[in-house]
Nucleic acid binder design. Structure first.
Lengths: 263, 263
DNA sequence: CTTGACCTTGACGCAGCGTCAAGGTCGCAG
DNA sequence: CTGCGACCTTGACGCTGCGTCAAGGTCAAG
């Protein structure tokens, strides 16, 4: 007759695991000797071996209990179900790996690759790192709040728009003017270029925004994120003004303080 | 400003998860409004998004905290470590799947395929199911107690021995005689055939047993497992006698009651 | 004013054991 | 005979990442 330690070591598990299996009803409690030690026989070795084989394959203990009592076909069906489970886990992990690769760096975290590329390029263009962080976070925010718009935008227009060198150069300039005086002529020049670019791409831009329910709370969050320097406030106010003068408007613009109110 | 439920739903997690992240220090506790509700802003949305992205990739929360504070290279190194981790999990799961396939049915559980095949064939040969169970369990026991012997045996001799039709026919007969009278001539005939077969394969058999330390406790377990009917007891006693008469012996034989003692 | 949907803190539950803690036992060496 | 170290016993807490009550307060709409 074996003690619990011997039993466990033969099968390759720990005594604690064996006691746990008793508690869960996977194995019957064996008889005790005079001093209260558990004493095991050949049957217990066999049963524990079968349990360990299933547990090692990742089968949940509750299911092991059923499987060991089940007939052969039921056993096979149970295993098939477990295999399907394992396959699902494998798929999950593979996706996770893909995600991890996509992440690659902090700038890629939570952003689709195309956006992330833009952020990375912007950073290496010598722009103020904190502004780049802010730009990146703005996209994250946008994506979370208006995922439909982002998807549409990426699928339909981004290849052309985000790859456009003139967009990138606008971006670099936008980063640069953040800390200038709002009245600086560079700010006004950038507002003109930006408005022109938006007008050119108006269709794609506004269509995208139709896909999600725009919502005052969300817009306030986005506005709040961008409103950080006087130059940027002025810039966005000017752009809105220019667009409206061109007959283009969006409900979202209402949150932006008008250039007139500033003065 | 957002409530915890809004924040959570935007990012796609539950309020409970957000509170948990606070507790673990992944996110700072935000300010409360007049009635004690947590109020969140854009920064919180961004941070939570980044957290959720990492958590969704299976990164342990403790590590997420470090990663979010880390610089870009450290971030990349951290991700590489996590990726290695995920790869290890993938390997594990793939092994598990292989094991599951190998299991296939209750008879294959905890047995190498070759043994399992034998058991399956034996079962379909019409042998008494309970005897087949006992035979199968005997192999499981053997494998657990003397794994070295099993490995050697399978690698070196099993292909020839276990595939041998005469071994299989012996096996079928062994199942059949279990409930006969020990004095039945069939039992004696089987003993003769079995002894002859063992003598023929003596080298492989005894070499295998040298690989593990044979141990009285283990042998008692094995003996106890087989000693179940008078006919089988007699059968094994006769086989041992015949082998010894041929000059072949093993320490393990000592546990088997001699045919003379029976009489 | 009443609902119903949120919010608050606090606590337990889940899987599968690992890991003390505090005490009793076994077997062997001195 | 006595120690000593390696076992055994039960009981209880710890780990991960939240889910899920419970018991109460709050908010917005009808």
């Amino acid at each position: 007759m074996l003690t619990i330690g011997e039993l466990a070591s033969y099968v390759g598990v720990t005594p604690r695991a064996v006691r746990f299996y008793h508690q869960r009803g996977l194995m019957p409690e064996p008889e005790r000797d005079a001093s209260g030690y558990r004493r095991y026989g050949a049957d217990d070795v066999i049963r524990l071996t079968r349990i360990a084989a299933l547990a090692g394959a990742g089968v949940p203990l509750a299911r092991i209990a059923e499987l060991l009592e089940a007939g052969d076909e039921e056993f096979a069906r149970g295993l098939a179900a477990i295999d399907a489970d394992v396959r699902a886990q494998l798929r999950r992990l593979r996706e996770v790996r893909a995600t991890l690769r996509e992440l690659g760096s902090a700038d890629r975290l939570a952003l689709p690759p195309m956006m992330a590329d833009l952020v990375v390029n912007l950073r290496s263009s010598g722009a103020d790192p904190e502004r780049v962080d802010q730009y990146r976070d703005g996209w994250i925010l946008n994506r979370v709040l208006y995922p439909g718009a982002m998807d549409y935008w990426l699928a339909d227009g981004a290849a052309g728009m985000l790859g456009d060198p003139s967009y990138f150069s606008m971006l670099v300039d936008t980063m640069r003017v953040a800390d200038l005086d709002p009245g600086d002529p560079e700010v006004e020049a950038l507002a003109q270029r930006s408005a022109a670019w938006i007008i050119e791409n108006w269709e794609v831009q506004s269509q995208a925004l139709e896909l999600d329910q725009t919502d005052a709370t969300k817009n306030r969050l986005l506005d709040g994120h961008w409103r950080s320097t006087p130059a940027w406030d002025h810039l966005s106010a000017r752009i809105v003004t220019l667009l409206r003068a061109h007959g283009l408007d969006r409900p979202e613009f209402d949150g932006v303080p008008s250039a007139e109110a500033e003065a």
